[in-house]
Amino acid sequence: MIGLVLAGGKSTRFGRDKALYHCPHERVNNAELAVNKLRLLSDEVIVSANAKNGDALTTQFQAVPTITVVTDQAPFVQHGPLSGIYAACCRHPQTTDYLVLAVDYPRITPNVLAAVADHPNCFAATPAASHYTIAHFSVSRNTLRDFLLLGDFRLGQFIEGSRQCLPLTFPNSESFTNYNYLEEINHAD
């Protein structure tokens, strides 16, 4: 299983790059928090970056041979999380097992990720929301390419429809707080 960190978002609502952001209560930035959690469960971690943060993330992780930073690959550039997954699939074109985590869940616990890792074809859910960017599934580059060529870039449709993932439900908790605005972090601390 390969850990996949989704770190390529535009962070428009957040106001600065979420992957490089260092939460006040943490020793490292959000990308490293996600990488460290996935390294507990996988031998390799891919960080899917964007054109703006790719160089910084590559420099940050260059000393660790089991961590690779990739950026969006044509023809699926800037199509949200599916572009990041496609970039990882370009590195591993065969059917590959992925454990996915987005950088905007800095409080997700290793126990939650371990539970998701133990259940193939699932995504994390709480009574309040589906958390598609915390998921475990297998896919090949060709399968994902064929899905994307249909023009549907909704992650939920890919996770539930194409990959037939089922929700793995957890109780509501701070772990599942998805930070979209900087003010949310400042109020949480």
Results as ranks from 00 to 15, higher is better:
L4D: 04
A7S: 08
K10T: 14
S11N: 06
S11W: 00
A19E: 05
L20E: 06
H22K: 14
H22Q: 12
H22V: 13
H22R: 14
H22E: 11
C23H: 14
V28G: 01
E32S: 04
E32L: 07
A34G: 06
K37Q: 15
K37C: 05
L38M: 05
L40D: 02
L41T: 11
S42V: 03
E44T: 13
I46W: 00
S48P: 12
S48G: 13
A49Q: 11
A49T: 07
N50T: 09
N50P: 14
A51Q: 13
N53C: 12
D55P: 10
D55F: 07
L57Y: 07
T58V: 02
Q62T: 08
Q62N: 12
A63Y: 12
P65V: 04
V69D: 02
V70E: 01
A74D: 08
A74F: 12
A74S: 14
Q78F: 11
Q78A: 12
H79M: 12
G80Y: 01
G84N: 03
G84D: 02
I85P: 00
I85Y: 01
A87C: 05
A88K: 05
R91A: 08
P93R: 04
P93V: 04
Q94F: 08
T95L: 11
T96W: 01
Y98C: 03
T109A: 06
T109K: 08
P110Q: 10
P110L: 03
A114R: 15
A117T: 02
A117W: 00
D118Y: 00
H119I: 10
S130Q: 10
H131S: 03
T133I: 01
S140N: 12
L150D: 15
D152E: 13
R154C: 11
R154K: 14
Q157P: 00
S162M: 13
S162L: 06
R163T: 11
Q164H: 12
Q164C: 11
P171D: 12
F176E: 10
T177R: 10
N178R: 14
N178T: 08
N180C: 07
N180H: 14
Y181C: 00
E183D: 15
E184N: 05
E184L: 05
I185M: 10
N186M: 12
A188N: 14
